[in-house]
């Protein structure tokens, strides 16, 4: 039987490849170069990466079935993956709601940050599996785990913001 770790590798490679392409396209958008084509490439490749991101996260979780997570790199991978998922979803929803290219540097910059997070997750994976990474200088063993009540408050704030934004969009 093919293990979850193998599926994790397959899906993460798809995610990283598509997000890398998206990141370059967002960089061009920030630099205001080739806006028309960059806009299409950035959002479609991010959408492609986003399709494979949840399976990559799930297979990664199944690959390490221990009750406790005992490695800081793994914890950072999970936190960064979900953060990137949130940012990417936001970028794509905004683009979809706008029904056209979004002017300014903020939107592509958020897209770039999201792509950077995914590449950082990939780097953490390399550090975890092989003990080496090009981003060796980053402090990857620092993890901030909030208490459950703090996470619950943040979750409530996030859901409120998403709901409010949805209601406002429907009204307009």
């Amino acid at each position: 039987m093919i293990s979850a770790a193998t599926f994790h590798v397959i899906t993460t490679e798809l995610v990283v490849g598509m997000f890398s392409l998206a990141g370059i396209a967002y960089l061009l958008l920030v630099l205001d170069k080739k806006r028309e084509i960059s806009d299409i490439i950035a959002h479609f490749s991010m959408l492609g990466g986003l399709v494979f991101l949840p399976p990559a996260i799930l297979f990664g979780i199944y690959a390490d079935p221990a009750e406790q997570i005992s490695n800081e790199l793994l914890a950072n991978k999970v936190l960064l993956s979900f953060s990137a998922l949130g940012l990417s979803l936001g970028v794509l929803i905004n683009r979809w709601l706008n029904k056209g290219p979004i002017s300014g540097w903020l939107h592509p910059s958020i897209g770039m940050v999201s792509c950077g997070m995914i590449l950082l997750v990939a780097s953490l994976g390399g550090m975890y599996a092989r003990g080496e990474s090009l981003l060796f200088f980053l402090p990857k063993d620092i993890v901030l785990i909030f208490p459950i009540w703090a996470s619950a408050i943040l979750l409530a704030m996030g859901i409120t913001m998403v709901s409010k934004s949805t209601i406002e969009h429907r009204r307009s």
Binding site: A75, S83, P147, I148, L155, M161
Partner: peptide, 22 residues
């Protein structure tokens, strides 16, 4: 704890990005 915080960060960042657009 980790998964709850992950979901919280996901929704928080999604909300912030959507609000920035609004």
């Amino acid at each position: 704890e980790l998964y709850l915080q992950s979901f919280a960060l996901m929704f928080l960042l999604l909300g912030l990005v959507l609000v920035s657009n609004r």
